[in-house]
Amino acid sequence: MTTVSSPALSKPKPARPGVAVSLSLLALAVVILMAIFGPLVFGLGNDLNPMMRLKPPSAIAWFGTDNLGRDVFVRTVSGARNSVTVGLCTAIVVLAIGGTLGVVAGYFNWVDRIVMRLADGLMAIPGILLAIALVSVLGGGLVTVIIAISVPEIPRTARLMRSVVLSIRELPFITAAISVGSSTPKILLRHIVPNAIGMLSVQATYVCAAAILSEAALSFLGVGTPPDVPSWGNVIASGKEYFRLAPWIIAFPGLLLSIMVLSINILGDRLRDRFDPRLAARRAS
């Protein structure tokens, strides 16, 4: 077989990740390193120092100090652990429960009716209020915060997965699987879930980003993680009264929070493009 192919016509190169994606990955890596090693290297930054209250950024305290004289840099770096933990744990909990509910609801009509009515009910309650209520009932702490943030996210993810599964279920290859005698569990686990996993991982990034923001919001409102364990949320919260005097208390953790959430969302969008079957087909052809 003789074929001519000029260099320009040969196989398309695998698309290089864009600058935005590279930067996002870098930012994420830095934050994760901070979350793992921050508290080990710098401690929790709870040392009060009345002499050093509300000092602007300097060589001693890079991000300045807060109203109790605590080093904002140390608290921000160590606070990453809380924020990242909340983000990841919420994403895992939400995906496990919401994803499963969504897949089952999408495939079995009778489950669908029950699950979706419950989801509608839950979604009608403002998420942050629900979280505040849960925290006040269950008491503060990391686990409570994760539960409180997960509950309102679960119906959203369940709904999304349900709609994804509903559309996959109608595709001829599912009919084909039924007609070659595949059992329902096999169809769900081997055909539907693998084809839905792309959307699920995209949703994971959004849930993760939203959870980090929600944790910040809860801490800001004073119902989040305890104040002696720094998180970006409670660092920002502690700075809110001194914003005019000492904007750096809010600015640095706020900036980091924004960068982290933006990075996760950029990666999520990128993932969605990757898993979009239409785009995949275009790449393949």
Partner: peptide, 30 residues
């Protein structure tokens, strides 16, 4: 086992995440 189907759209009736081998093997496993 005794009645099988050939579909109109060969692209849509094959799971995009399965290899040719796995697709033909599925009924044998079942």
């Amino acid at each position: 086992r005794s009645v099988q189907m050939i579909f109109q759209d060969p692209s849509a009736s094959l799971d995009p995440r399965w290899t040719a081998e796995a697709i033909v093997r599925e009924p044998l496993d079942n």
